[in-house]
């Protein structure tokens, strides 16, 4: 019985309509859209120093080593978070737990680790010409395209919440937020957009 299956929730579901209202309200005056991306499977990958090359073979996903870089993978993203730390997502993995179970032995063999963090992040997208300015109201990073373009990611603060900020093509920004802070960040974004209302 479908009704009996455990149903996952998106923590920011309650905010979806308010974000949509904002885009409609600003249409024609300010180019800004805040949307929620669907939850994906995600692994936090930790690698021993210098072992990224062997770890990416074990993982089957590239691990970019340039600081603040991320790469698209066949089915998701591979984001470089720190000298020995990556976040790897997979939109197609139906069970992150199974993915973790398969991956972990191969990674462990090369001194690396993987943890299922699929429920750990809410994924927000900011699009439109006003997106960069909106972020500048609470993020101290240099977000000029030459400094923070597509394929760039950084853990930083937005307002008072830690976020993982990810640059995409066309000036789009992805915000990966710890789910417990997602409500704060959603409220913060809407409040920041008061400037345009």
């Amino acid at each position: 019985m479908t009704a009996d299956l455990l149903a996952p929730v998106h923590l920011l579901d309650a905010w979806r309509a308010r974000f949509e209202d904002l885009t409609v309200e600003l249409a024609g005056r300010h180019d800004l859209a805040i949307t929620l991306a669907p939850s994906t499977a995600a692994l936090a990958v930790r690698v021993a120093p210098g072992a990224a090359a062997v770890a990416e073979v074990a993982l089957g996903v590239p691990l970019p080593t340039r600081p603040l870089a991320w790469e698209p993978t066949l089915r998701g993203q591979s984001l470089h978070l720190g000298p020995d730390e990556w976040l790897v997502t997979d939109v197609a993995a139906t069970s992150a737990a199974a993915w973790e179970a398969v991956t972990r032995p191969a990674l462990a063999a090369v001194g690396a680790a993987a943890s299922d963090v699929s429920a750990q992040y809410a994924d927000l997208r900011l699009q439109g010409r006003a997106a960069r300015e909106l972020l500048s109201f609470g993020c101290a990073l240099d977000l000029r395209p030459a400094s923070f373009g597509p394929r760039t990611c950084a853990r930083t603060l937005l307002g008072q919440s830690g976020v993982l900020l990810v640059g995409h093509d066309d000036g789009e920004f992805q915000l990966l937020v710890r789910t417990s802070f997602a409500g704060y960040v959603a409220a913060w974004l809407l409040d920041a957009a008061e400037e345009y209302r």
Binding site: A44, A48, A113, S115, V117, A119, Q120, R178, T179
Partner: peptide, 12 residues
């Protein structure tokens, strides 16, 4: 030490 620590507070 061959150890990695990862926060999973929000995961579970």
């Amino acid at each position: 030490l061959a150890v990695h620590v990862t926060s999973v507070t929000d995961q579970w």
